[in-house]
Amino acid sequence: MISVRELTRHYGDLVAVNNLTFTIRKGEITGLLGPNGAGKTTTLRMLTCYLTPTSGVVSIGDFRVDEDPIAVREIIGYLPESVPIYGDMVVYDYLKYVADIRGVTDPGRIREIAELCGISEIMHKNVEELSKGYRQRVGLAHAMIHDPEILILDEPTSGLDPNQIVEIRNLIREIGKTKTIILSTHILSEVEATCDRVIIINEGRIVKDSTVDAITSSHGSEIVIHATIGGADFPSIEAAIRKLDGVAHVSQTGGEGDLVTVEVQTNAASDLRPMIFHTAAENGWVLYEMARDAMTLERIFRDLTIGGGA
């Protein structure tokens, strides 16, 4: 559906996007994940024909971005990051304007899309009076008015409150059942919550391209235990815990007063928590807290982008 080959974009001396190659199949929800400044927005802008690539080829559907940009724009719905829709227009007029440009003639379509995006009640309001959440919904309605096959969303949940984030994510999931969606984000839980597939980019390069399930399960055998312990200092805690079977790494992640919070990375098949509890009891430490986590995308992401895991 979307094929990107050796896509590169320079801004003067800065290489914002460096040799990206990936393909996206029909019906997938793909997350483009990376820290700020990784080149996500630049990539999306090239897919939507707003920016011209310095080199490389982008094909969307049957069309190439450099050969038939108008045809590409016709089959795409795009929501830019800050949702820069005209402030001085009423929501209905704005959607009507976009529908007219797109040649959408069905008079019921605007009402239909308003219902889907949950903006029926605010159709008569000025865009600049809207809350961030509603603005985002109007942006989504704008992107979907012509029922595009491909939806490209740049940071669709940025600046929203937690309830709005859940609502927008559900909406994206719902739409994603029938459409191909690419969304960019720097929030990992967003990818876990909404995407089938994730492309992690850093400094303009792809560092990981795989399904979300594959990433979490391949690193999933690594278990992390967080424990808050009182009555001992970190070196002695580290020394004692290190002796346990299956401990890969112990590090201090916090501490307050006499308390020390440690993170224990394990690769053991069995649960290490009982062993840690016994170790604490034998040494006369006080165990305040203990929790067990699967290796999260958050960590994988950190390893890949900072640890030079590419």
């Binding site: 802008r45 939507t48 024909c49 707003y50 108008i70 045809a71 724009r73 016709e74 795409i76 795009y78 830019p80 800050s82 820069p84 829709i85 005209y86 402030g87 976009v98 440009i101 797109r102 704008h142």
Partner: peptide, 11 residues
């Protein structure tokens, strides 16, 4: 305002 991005990504 950046709305040029929206305008220029319409067909």
């Amino acid at each position: 305002t950046g709305s040029l991005e929206i305008l220029m990504t319409l067909p």
